[in-house]
């Protein structure tokens, strides 16, 4: 049965060399990813990084131009139906039928997954209770708030008790109550051994929840590991330096040359989007005083200097030269979601 060897005993999802283009836009550039069984795996990246494309490929909704997709030991490109049986999917855009009630939608879902009549009733009752949907489940979906829709969608995705749950930005636009319910449920599922893959562009979420994570940027995995590993890989503390409030490129390059020669400064990135501030990774206690001394010697002022434990944002910044927030802003105006919806329509 297991044509993919021992790897598939350990990994729930194995993606190799995924390429995907939409017309002239390339979304994925040879993406590799391994997601171990039983883990809550976070996919972090700014808007446009390729999270949804990756997830749609895993869930058999999108065929890659090249590369391989193995889910639970099954080749998803050859046997998509087996894969569909085993995974629950909560899409980024919740698709509901406004005329149906929540319960009717769950019943439809149960039949599409071929649950028996008794199982169907049992699971629907259970999910309604578990996600606290009792008071509104018999109202039409058209009247639901974003949080209610998301909870309904989550219930639908879990109805057939999948081994793998895939969620695309599950907490975007959620009210606090719904967010709490969703997180609690995900923790509980994880404790039962269910593998969870979720994408997000919220750092905090991934940092707190995920066992492992990958950072996606422009269709590639630029960092992978546990959140702590990723931060430790930066190897030291994180320092932000501004010589003045708004510097320019020339000046920050000069400053960089000065800093480059200091012992214990491991990496320097010029943050163009933040007034050419400099982000350094430093090791050792003596670096900061040394740094002040050198800057003064070279006649540079110091507007701000701060040292902190690295965050995931620093990991991202170090890899791309941009903070996640800025990457987000940079892409915001460029995407035509209507056009994409039309082109991506199946």
């Amino acid at each position: 049965m297991d044509v993919f060897g021992v790897e598939s005993l350990i990994q729930m999802i194995e993606l190799r060399g995924l390429e995907k283009s939409f017309g002239s836009i390339q979304a994925l550039f040879g993406l590799d990813l391994s997601i171990p069984r039983g883990c809550l795996y976070g996919l972090l990246g700014p808007n446009g990084a390729g999270k949804t494309s990756t997830i749609r490929i895993i869930t058999t909704l999108l065929a890659p131009d090249s590369g391989s997709v193995v889910v639970n030991g099954v080749d998803a490109l050859k046997e998509p139906c087996i894969v569909r049986n085993q995974l629950g999917y909560v899409a980024q855009e919740v698709a509901i039928d406004k005329i149906l009630t929540g319960r009717e939608l769950l019943e439809l879902q149960a039949d599409l997954y071929h649950l028996s009549q008794s199982k169907k009733i049992e699971r629907i009752t259970f999910m309604i209770q578990r996600l606290d949907m009792d008071s509104w489940i018999d109202r039409r979906c058209g009247t639901y708030s974003g949080g209610m829709r998301r909870r309904l969608d989550l219930a639908a995705g879990l109805l057939h008790e999948p081994e793998l749950l895939v969620l695309d930005e599950p907490t975007v636009g959620l009210d606090l109550e719904s967010r709490k319910i969703v997180w609690e449920l995900l923790r509980e599922l994880k404790s039962k051994g269910i593998t969870i893959l979720l994408s997000s562009h919220y750092l905090e979420e991934i940092e707190i929840m995920a066992d492992r994570m990958a950072i996606l940027d422009r269709g590639r995995v630029i960092a992978e590991g546990t959140p702590d590993q990723l931060k430790d890989e930066l190897g030291g503390d994180h320092v932000t330096l501004r010589v003045r409030e708004f510097s320019d490129e020339k000046e920050s390059m000069q400053v960089r040359d000065v800093l480059d020669n200091i012992d214990g400064v491991k990496q320097i990135v010029v943050n163009r989007s933040q007034g050419f501030s400099l982000n350094l990774v430093v090791e050792g206690e003596t670096v900061l005083p040394k740094l002040r001394e050198e800057l003064t010697k070279a006649d540079f002022p110091i507007f701000a200097l701060s040292q902190s434990r690295p965050s995931l944002d620093d990991v991202y910044l170090q890899a791309t030269g941009m903070t996640l927030m800025d990457a987000e802003l940079a892409i915001a105006g460029q995407r035509d979601s209507k056009l994409e919806a039309k082109k991506g329509m199946r």
Binding site: T60, R84, A91, A95, I96, Q109, L112, H114, A156, R346
Partner: peptide, 11 residues
């Protein structure tokens, strides 16, 4: 996008 719900199901 409702069709995606049908397409991702193991019909």
């Amino acid at each position: 996008g409702f069709l995606n719900r049908l397409l991702v199901a193991p019909l």
